[in-house]
C-alpha cells in the first residue's frame, strides 16, 4: 500500500514538472497553433540564468537565507527568459506568420539548436549542480515520503495553472488572446493588436518556462545545456494528451503522463510477470497516449480539431 502511495506521489510530482513546462507550450500553441520546439530550451535558459545568479551570490558570500537566494535567482531568470521569448517570437516566428504551417516548425528546431549551443558556449559542456539552498526536509504521508521541494513543485504548478486560467478567462488581455486565437484578422478588426497579444503570450509563456526551469533543476539538483530537449518533448506529449491549447488540459495531461510513467515503471514487471520491465516505461506511456488519442482524437479536454494538416 505505502508503495502504491509512494508511486502515486512520484507520478504526481513528475507530472507537475511536465505540467509546468506544458503550460507554456500550450499557451503559445493555443494562440498560434505553433509547436514551439524551443520552449524546452527557454526552460533550460531559465535554470542556467538562475544558477549563474545563485552561484555568484553564494560565491560572493552573501549572507541571506537559501530561499531568498533562490528567489533572487528566479527573479533574474524570469525577465531574462521573457526577453528571450520575446526575441525568439520577433526574429524567428513573426516573419513566418503567413508561411506554410511547417515552416515555423523548422525555425523552431533551428532556434532550439542555436539556444543549446549558445548555452554550451556560455556555461560549458558540464553538468552544473544546483546548490542545496532550498529546504531539504520531508514529510511522511500514509507510509510514503514527500519532500518540501516536491510540495513546492506541486503547489507551483497548480497556482500557475489557476493564475493563467484566470488571466485568459477574466482579463482584458485574456479576452484579446482568445480572440486572436480564433481569428487574428477579426480580432484586429475589433481593435486588438494581434502582434502585441502574441508577443505578450510568448513573454508570459517564457516567464513560466523560467519558473519551471528553476524548479526542475532545484528538484533534481542539476542543470545542463541539453536538459531542455527531453523535458520539452515530454511536456509537448503531455499538452497533446490533455488537448493542446487548453490550460487545464496541459495540467491534466502532465499529471496523467507522470502518473502513467511512474506506475508503468513501478508495476510493468509485475503485470507482465517479469517479461517486460521498467525499460518499457516509455512504451507504456506512449501506448496509453495513443489509445487516448484514438478514442479522443483531440486530447482529453481539447475541442474537436478543425482541418489543419
Amino acid at each position: 500500500m505505502d508503495i502504491l502511495v509512494q508511486q502515486l506521489i512520484n507520478g504526481l510530482v513528475l507530472g507537475s514538472v511536465y505540467a509546468l513546462v506544458a503550460l507554456g507550450y500550450t499557451m503559445v500553441y493555443g494562440i498560434l497553433e505553433l509547436i514551439n520546439f524551443a520552449h524546452g530550451e527557454v526552460t533550460m535558459f531559465g535554470a542556467m540564468v538562475a544558477l549563474a545568479v545563485i552561484s555568484a551570490l553564494l560565491g560572493a558570500g552573501v549572507d541571506l537565507p537559501g530561499v531568498v537566494i533562490a528567489l533572487l535567482g528566479l527573479l533574474t531568470a524570469i525577465p531574462a527568459c521573457m526577453l528571450l521569448g520575446y526575441g525568439i517570437e520577433r526574429l524567428a516566428y513573426r516573419p513566418l506568420r503567413h508561411a506554410p504551417r511547417l515552416a515555423p516548425l523548422i525555425t523552431a528546431i533551428g532556434v532550439s539548436i542555436v539556444l543549446q549551443n549558445i548555452a554550451m558556449l556560455i556555461w560549458g559542456r558540464q553538468y552544473i549542480s544546483f546548490p542545496p539552498i532550498l529546504p531539504q526536509g520531508y514529510h511522511t504521508l500514509l507510509g510514503a515520503r514527500i519532500t518540501d521541494v516536491q510540495i513546492l513543485i506541486l503547489v507551483a504548478s497548480l497556482v500557475l495553472m489557476v493564475a493563467l486560467t484566470l488571466l485568459v478567462q477574466r482579463t482584458q488581455l485574456g479576452r484579446a488572446m482568445r480572440a486572436t486565437a480564433q481569428s487574428p484578422q477579426l480580432a484586429g478588426l475589433m481593435g486588438v493588436d494581434a502582434n502585441r497579444v502574441i508577443s505578450l503570450t510568448f513573454i508570459i509563456g517564457s516567464g513560466i518556462a523560467a519558473v519551471a526551469g528553476v524548479l526542475v533543476s532545484a528538484y533534481y539538483g542539476l542543470a545542463h545545456y541539453y536538459m531542455g530537449f527531453l523535458l520539452g518533448l515530454k511536456a509537448f506529449s503531455a499538452a497533446v494528451l490533455g488537448g493542446v491549447g487548453n490550460l487545464a488540459g496541459a495540467m491534466l495531461g502532465g499529471l496523467l503522463l507522470g502518473v502513467i510513467e511512474s506506475l508503468g515503471a513501478g508495476y510493468i514487471g509485475d503485470i507482465t510477470g517479469g517479461f517486460l520491465g521498467s525499460n518499457y516505461q516509455d512504451v507504456f506511456a506512449f501506448f496509453v497516449l495513443i489509445i487516448v488519442l484514438i478514442v479522443r482524437p483531440s486530447g482529453l479536454l481539447g475541442k474537436p480539431s478543425h482541418d489543419r494538416a
Binding site: 506529449s237 516509455d282 506512449f286 495513443i290
Partner: peptide, 23 residues
C-alpha cells in the same frame, strides 16, 4: 489506428510509434 488523427495529434502519435520501435 491513426486514421482519424490530424496535424499535431498525428505528429505526436507517430513520434510515439517511432520511439516505441526504438525502445
Amino acid at each position: 489506428p491513426t486514421l482519424r488523427l490530424r496535424g499535431d495529434y498525428l505528429a505526436i502519435v507517430t513520434l510515439g510509434f517511432g520511439e516505441i520501435i526504438r525502445i
